[in-house]
């Protein structure tokens, strides 16, 4: 493992822009190439090729993974689209890999990784998303809320794929910070949260202290989230960020942690399948019900399953460079011991 990590750390950063083919004469979709990776789609599948292997994925699952990888700016650490293909964020550059975190590919030497400058890769993935997403498909929506991505090219849905998540600098509702959600700003109550109380707290500031006190309903805020598995930020206390999100159906990626994160299940229920970050070997199943709290250690990957739309508080530590301290073993993967 150590040798592999060192080899990967020495990868050159590729800066050349991606290439796009003309639309396919039958399906109408463009092909995309960046570095040695080729991406093609047909009516059902995304097909990814690199010098050592070909990989196929259901196109809807692929687009759901891709839209989040792009929206999160490659997120923290590993975004595994499935057990084979994914990206690793090096914060400035991004690794694209095939089988590099799968024991079978590693054992057969068929794993492959290339490193790209973040902006160059982002431009490729954004263009691919725009071309491959049909008008009737929203990859941020739960499957029961949207049409299918399958079939030949049929328009586009740039408004959906370019959705910008809301990031508070300090606290939602403070003057100049991220606003509360309401019908007026286009955030209506989701069908699965129709029973959630819509009251807001009463903020009574004395003269001279207006704008210094603040409160908002987090449950109302989440009941009006138009997307799934796409955290917003509602409060930041130094490096501590509350990143709540509404979840329904399956998290479209196995998130591999490069630092510790925590889950606080605020409503309903999610089951997490947890696997080894490097080998993809199963490690545990964590079922979280309303009020449950669990950490995700820094050495695992996890994918959530939410049978009903639920409210999850993801809690992150924004300190830059934490990933290096965990990678070097300076910090233990589990944040407390007893």
């Amino acid at each position: 493992m150590a040798a592999t990590a060192e080899q990967i750390n020495e990868l050159p950063v590729l800066t050349e822009a991606h290439r796009e083919s003309a639309p396919h004469p039958v399906t109408g979709y463009k092909g995309f190439e960046i570095g040695s990776f080729k991406f093609q789609r047909d009516e059902y599948f995304a097909r990814i090729q690199c010098p050592t292997a070909t990989h196929v994925m259901d196109v809807e699952n692929f687009l759901r993974s891709m839209v989040r990888d792009v929206a999160w700016g490659f997120f923290y650490g590993w975004v595994n689209f499935d057990e084979v293909f994914g990206t690793v964020n090096n914060y400035g550059s991004v690794d694209v890999f095939m089988g590099a975190y799968n024991q079978g590919y590693k054992d057969s030497g068929t794993d492959f990784t290339e490193r790209f400058e973040t902006e160059v890769l982002l431009a490729c993935f954004k263009s691919l998303l725009s071309d491959w997403t049909n008008a009737c498909f929203n990859p941020f929506a739960a499957p029961l809320e949207t049409g299918s991505a399958r079939g030949p090219k049929n328009g586009s849905n740039d408004e959906a794929v370019n959705f910008q998540r809301e990031l508070a600098d300090r606290f939602v509702s403070l003057p100049g910070d991220s606003p509360v959600r309401s019908d007026e700003n286009g955030r209506s109550v989701n069908r699965q949260f129709a029973d959630v109380d819509q009251s807001e707290p009463e903020v009574h500031a004395e003269p001279g202290f207006e704008g210094q006190l603040a409160g908002f309903s987090l449950f109302r805020y989440l009941s009006r989230s138009p997307v799934t598995w796409n955290p917003s930020i509602v409060s930041v206390v130094r490096s501590s960020a509350y990143c709540p999100t509404s979840e329904e159906h399956i998290l479209p990626v196995d998130h591999g942690n490069d630092r510790v994160e925590w889950f606080i299940q605020m409503s309903d229920e999610i089951t997490w399948r947890v696997a080894d970050k490097n080998t993809a070997a199963p490690m545990s199943v964590v079922t979280m019900k309303a009020g449950d709290v669990s950490c995700m250690p820094a050495d695992i990957r996890h994918r959530g399953y939410s049978p009903k739309r639920s409210m999850l508080l993801v809690w992150e530590n924004l300190t830059p460079g934490l990933e290096i301290r965990y990678a070097k073993g300076e910090l233990p993967p589990v944040p407390a011991s007893f």
């Binding site: 939602v172 959630v196 109380d197 009251s199 807001e200 707290p201 009463e202 903020v203 009574h204 006190l213 603040a214 409160g215 908002f216 309903s217 987090l218 449950f219 109302r220 509602v234 409060s235």
Partner: peptide, 9 residues
């Protein structure tokens, strides 16, 4: 601030 369930202060 007067708050009830789900409110954040």
């Amino acid at each position: 601030v007067k708050a009830s369930r789900g409110h954040m202060v």
